[in-house]
Design a protein around this nucleic acid. Structure first.
Lengths: 223, 223
DNA sequence: GCAGGGGTGACAGCTTGATGACAGTTTCTC
DNA sequence: GAGAAACTGTCATCAAGCTGTCACCCCTGC
């Protein structure tokens, strides 16, 4: 999941970043509205977490601009205190959810995940893949009820492939979903590496990753 | 698709070229207005991507010249920052679209493709060819829902034939749509080769490539 | 039957992807 | 906090697939 966090206070931003990254998101941070605009122009995000109070304007401005352009990226607003005004105007302008600070981090994680899931139209959290069952929220994979341990990166990769199972996903797209701008010096070879590692772990489970030369990879399920 | 990119900054040009070429376009690069004029004089393009700020003038000058000559080649303008002036004058002078830098590369790809498609008057992205379905954007071909893998060149060739299905396309025209000036040392035999390879892959799918001796090739659909 | 364009198999060079080994880093455990 | 274990990403090497040339054959229309 590629995520943009727009939040100016250092401590808050840091805390949220750490949590979301641990939860497997490739997470970019913007400290100002201006930075956020640049990020949004260059990168497509799965979810945006947007603070309302920013040094150079209101988060709702960005929200409004994006919706005016027809961008439907799920956006979760953060508001410093419970303000009926903020809430009403946010939802009016097309925010998908909002959260009042201070909040429980697990709450934020759950809501972000819900937005991400809703975007893909998945109803339940767990996805059945032949003999495998994948739970992106809990970040677990099981083979016939037996846990099959994967690392953070492997799960991030698998998550994108599962969301697009049966369809080809380009290597660039996979890269963007796994690595944030901060990790931009990572080579494209890393994607190939994790594909290889995933393949090895998936083994003969009936789930395969097919290579489409020059186009990308596709997750196929036997039977 | 034969495309001209007019862009002076090296990195930007490089990045765009790589993307568009991977997307199957035969892509010429002009670093100056002067170079661009030469290209346009010599070669017919399907789409032109034109930066406004160039070392020896404004992209809008070229736009104006071409429109004055009655050339209707789809042109997408690139502008360094959001300037209402640029936008208004570009669209006034007959630009077909514009994009503000920085942008998401997929956005550029999608817009270029939209212009190309519009030029041919295609409404939807996917084209039905008997039992085959061809999606030039995703660059996929399917036979009864089964993917039929083609290589980059094969798809580029097929794309031109499909756009002109039922009509004869000259070998020179096919050559120009597949190879850019940089690949000009490639022999005309290469077109024949790819025709042969395409024929082999198409097999008995009801889509045939007929040879019109001395004139070119024509894509026919049975039934 | 002959001239010239077109078709095609074989091949060599190149690009892209796969993978083992390794070193730096983080995380876990005691 | 020290040591161990696991995770990450780079590099080098290997394998597979794509590309375009060549050579040679086959048609087709005179």
């Amino acid at each position: 999941m590629r995520l943009l966090l727009v939040e100016d206070t250092y401590d808050m931003a840091e805390a949220i970043m750490i949590r979301l990254e641990r939860a497997g998101a490739a997470c970019d941070l913007a400290r100002t509205l201006e930075q956020a605009r640049e990020c949004v122009a260059v990168q497509r995000y799965d979810v945006i977490v947007l603070d309302i109070n920013l040094p150079d304007g209101l988060g709702t401005d960005l929200l409004r601009e994006m919706r005016a352009r027809g961008e439907r990226t799920p956006i979760l607003m953060l508001t410093a205190e419970f303000s009926v005004d903020d809430r009403v105007s946010s939802l009016n302008w097309g925010a998908d959810d909002y959260l009042v600070k201070p909040f429980d981090h697990r709450e934020l994680e759950a809501r972000v995940r819900a937005l991400y899931r809703r975007e893909a139209g998945e109803k339940s959290e767990e996805v059945a893949l032949g003999r495998l069952r994948f739970n992106p929220g809990a970040r677990t994979l099981r083979l016939d009820d037996e846990p099959l341990p994967l690392t953070r990166r492997e799960i991030s990769l698998l998550e994108v492939l599962v969301r697009n199972r049966g369809k080809v996903v380009s290597k660039e797209r996979l890269f963007e979903s796994i690595f944030s701008f901060e990790e931009t010096d990572v080579g494209m070879n890393a994607v190939e590496l994790y594909i290889a590692r995933l393949r090895k772990k998936l083994g003969e489970t009936g789930v395969r990753i097919a290579t489409q030369r020059g186009l990308g990879y596709r997750l196929d399920i036997d039977g």
